[in-house]
Amino acid sequence: MTRRIAALSTFFLLALPAVALAAEENGTDEEKFNPASEWTLHEWIPIHLGPIDMSINKAVAYLLLGALVSCLIGIVFMRVKVGSEPTRRQALGETIYEVAQVQVAEQGLPTKAIGRWFPYVATLMIFIWVINMLGFIPLPLSDEKVTIAGVKVPTLALFAATSTLSTTLALALMTFVFTHVEGIRANGTWKYFKSWIPDVPKAMYPLIVPLEILGQFMRLISLSVRLYANMLAGHMLILTFLGLIFIIENVLLAVIAVPAAAVFYLFEVVIVVSIQAYIFAALSAIYIGSAIEPEH
């Protein structure tokens, strides 16, 4: 464990330049330095379609990279076969597939719907896991730049696209829309919406119906905020510990701050990253499954 903490402490030093520049830009006293400034997204490539802002920024770059890596995982681990004997790579691919099928799809979806919706929930699980993991790897995808040999290049930084509410809300909105579209397709419009109303006296409908409708929208909030809050909190803690070195202006504080940040890093990578990806995909499967068979 000590060796892992030491290795991660060295690993975190890669992210210090971005924190240092952020501290310099915001001032070095404690009141001015704010780790939340890391989530201020600056436009890299402005794209505005009327009132719609589709500009490329740091979060979009992480999403594009996450989509690419997710596709590579599917191709390399589950499509490409080298030799006739099973390899560790193939075994890992089968494990990912089994978790997605047995623990996510089969637990939430009715048997008749697995073939249709397994690809969606499996993709959700892998994509969110990849995005979460990329958020804990120092990458040159930051808004701060450092001059090297006269050329300005982005500093290494830690940032997770899932720590922005717009990303998690978009993912949750897809599940929300698919849930109700599939519910209507499987049951018909009247039968599906009628299934929202429990078997209670009609006099209670004015109270129950608004609550049931609100409950449907609460699923959207629950899905998006759970993932967003967990990823945001983890990164805020890590950046806060690293930022203390520059706030207090004492490099000796790194002896405490960097290992402390490494401990939170371990907790996030080992536990939070995978659990949050699994929960989001599993709840998506449950919501879609309950819309297909509302009586269950």
Rank of each mutant, 00 (worst) to 15 (best):
M1G: 04
T2H: 07
R4L: 15
L8W: 07
L14D: 01
P17F: 15
P17K: 04
A20L: 13
P35F: 09
A36W: 13
E43P: 00
W44P: 01
W44D: 07
P46D: 12
I47A: 05
M54Y: 06
N57I: 15
V60A: 09
A61Q: 05
Y62W: 12
G66F: 10
G74L: 00
G74R: 00
M78I: 05
K81M: 14
V82G: 03
G83V: 11
E85A: 08
R88Q: 03
R89F: 11
Q90E: 14
L92I: 15
L92G: 02
G93P: 03
E94C: 05
T95Q: 04
Y97S: 04
E98H: 08
Q101V: 02
V102S: 06
L109G: 00
L109R: 00
P110Q: 07
A113Y: 04
A113L: 11
A113T: 06
R116Y: 10
F118P: 00
A122M: 07
A122W: 02
L124K: 03
L124N: 07
I128C: 05
W129N: 01
I131T: 08
I131G: 03
F136V: 12
S142W: 10
D143Y: 02
D143T: 02
E144M: 12
I148D: 06
G150A: 12
V151H: 11
P154H: 03
A157M: 14
A161K: 02
S163A: 15
T167Q: 07
L171I: 15
A172H: 05
L173K: 04
T175A: 15
F178R: 01
H180I: 14
E182R: 02
T189H: 04
K191P: 03
I197G: 02
I197E: 07
D199T: 14
V200L: 11
K202Q: 07
A203M: 07
Y205T: 10
L207K: 01
V209C: 06
P210I: 14
P210H: 08
I213E: 09
Q216R: 14
M218H: 08
M218T: 15
R219V: 09
L227P: 01
L227T: 05
A229I: 12
A233L: 15
A233G: 14
A233N: 12
G234Q: 13
G234H: 13
L239N: 07
L242A: 13
L244S: 04
L244W: 08
I247W: 01
I247P: 01
I248T: 01
P259G: 04
A261Q: 08
F264A: 09
F264K: 03
L266E: 12
I271P: 03
S274V: 13
I275N: 00
I275Q: 02
A277V: 06
F280I: 14
F280N: 02
A281R: 00
L283E: 13
L283G: 06
Y287C: 11
I288D: 03
P294D: 13
